Computed example of a mutant assay.
Amino acid sequence: MDYQLAIENAPDTVPGGTGILLLHPSIGETDRIDTDFFKTDTDHFLIVSTRTTAREVEQKLEHYDVDESRADILDTLSVERGYSRWRTDNVHYVSAPDDLDGIVAQVTDFLESHEGKLRLSVDSVTELAYYADVDGAYDATRKLLDLLDKHDAVGLFHLSNEVHDAETIQRFRELFDGVVELDLDGGVEADF
């Protein structure tokens, strides 16, 4: 199954199983790329949030007019930080951003329990590497990409190109079918 992409300078469609790396500056405006990714040609999507809480993700979706009824959110921050949590059918939690096995298990559950065109966003791999380590984040990313392939889904994985050295960035690039680079001015380049 093919998925439409609404990403500037990227192909119009990509096949199921495609993983896309979004390289961006630390203060880069990734929200429009993320939300356009969800809005297009999607039955259900899961956001693995390692930078913001579920409530902040919901506010972003509302602000960008994304259909929240199709959204599931995995909040990796609220438990560790002691924030109040309201478990709902579409908001899930793991203990912390370094609970990589828990994150992979939640993504597996999402992909196995939904049908149709499924999308995944991991925002961000940089935070996974910060809380766990680069090798752990790399292994978890590889497992998530395997799941996308198995379930004919597509995914967008955020990685800050200012935080990691060139060798680490290249290591992650090689995992992905496509790389989208966002610059400070909002310009987008894509390599598929």
Rank of each mutant, 00 (worst) to 15 (best):
residue 24 H to N: 14
residue 94 V to R: 04
residue 56 E to P: 01
residue 67 D to E: 13
residue 96 A to R: 09
residue 169 I to T: 15
residue 33 I to P: 01
residue 120 L to E: 03
residue 22 L to W: 05
residue 68 E to Q: 13
residue 185 D to E: 15
residue 88 T to A: 10
residue 100 L to H: 09
residue 144 L to Y: 05
residue 99 D to T: 02
residue 80 E to C: 00
residue 113 S to V: 06
residue 80 E to G: 06
residue 163 V to D: 08
residue 53 T to G: 09
residue 168 T to D: 12
residue 68 E to L: 09
residue 108 T to Q: 13
residue 77 L to Y: 01
residue 44 H to E: 15
residue 186 G to V: 12
residue 13 T to C: 03
residue 169 I to W: 06
residue 55 R to M: 07
residue 171 R to P: 01
residue 32 R to G: 05
residue 12 D to A: 05
residue 64 Y to T: 05
residue 122 V to L: 15
residue 183 D to V: 14
residue 64 Y to K: 05
residue 116 G to T: 10
residue 6 A to D: 13
residue 87 R to S: 10
residue 151 H to F: 07
residue 180 V to W: 11
residue 90 N to A: 06
residue 168 T to N: 06
residue 92 H to R: 10
residue 5 L to V: 11
residue 26 S to V: 14
residue 17 G to A: 02
residue 111 L to F: 05
residue 57 V to W: 00
residue 123 D to S: 13
residue 13 T to H: 08
residue 137 A to R: 07
residue 149 D to S: 01
residue 162 E to P: 04
residue 120 L to K: 08
residue 158 H to W: 04
residue 95 S to A: 02
residue 6 A to W: 07
residue 52 T to L: 07
residue 102 G to H: 13
residue 179 V to I: 15
residue 171 R to D: 08
residue 102 G to P: 13
residue 87 R to T: 06
residue 135 D to M: 14
residue 176 F to W: 13
residue 190 A to G: 03
residue 78 S to V: 07
residue 52 T to F: 11
residue 77 L to I: 10
residue 21 L to F: 02
residue 104 V to N: 08
residue 181 E to F: 03
residue 79 V to G: 00
residue 65 D to C: 11
residue 139 D to C: 00
residue 165 D to W: 02
residue 192 F to E: 08
residue 39 K to Q: 13
residue 133 D to V: 05
residue 87 R to A: 15
residue 48 V to M: 10
residue 189 E to R: 14
residue 143 K to T: 01
residue 171 R to L: 08
residue 48 V to D: 03
residue 171 R to N: 06
residue 80 E to H: 07
residue 63 H to V: 11
residue 157 F to N: 03
residue 30 T to R: 14
residue 182 L to P: 03
residue 134 V to K: 14
residue 100 L to Q: 09
residue 187 G to V: 01
residue 185 D to I: 06
residue 13 T to Q: 09
residue 132 A to V: 09
residue 39 K to W: 09
residue 116 G to C: 05
residue 62 E to D: 14
residue 147 L to G: 01
residue 122 V to F: 04
residue 141 T to Q: 05
residue 147 L to Y: 07
residue 45 F to H: 00
residue 12 D to I: 04
residue 75 D to T: 08
residue 137 A to P: 10
residue 23 L to N: 10
residue 41 D to G: 09
residue 90 N to H: 13
residue 27 I to C: 08
residue 190 A to F: 10
residue 17 G to E: 06
residue 68 E to H: 11
residue 25 P to M: 09
residue 160 S to P: 01
residue 70 R to T: 00
residue 33 I to W: 05
residue 177 D to N: 15
residue 80 E to P: 00
residue 89 D to N: 11
residue 144 L to A: 01
residue 88 T to G: 13
residue 31 D to N: 12
residue 180 V to R: 07
residue 10 A to V: 04
residue 74 L to F: 10
residue 1 M to T: 12
residue 71 A to E: 00
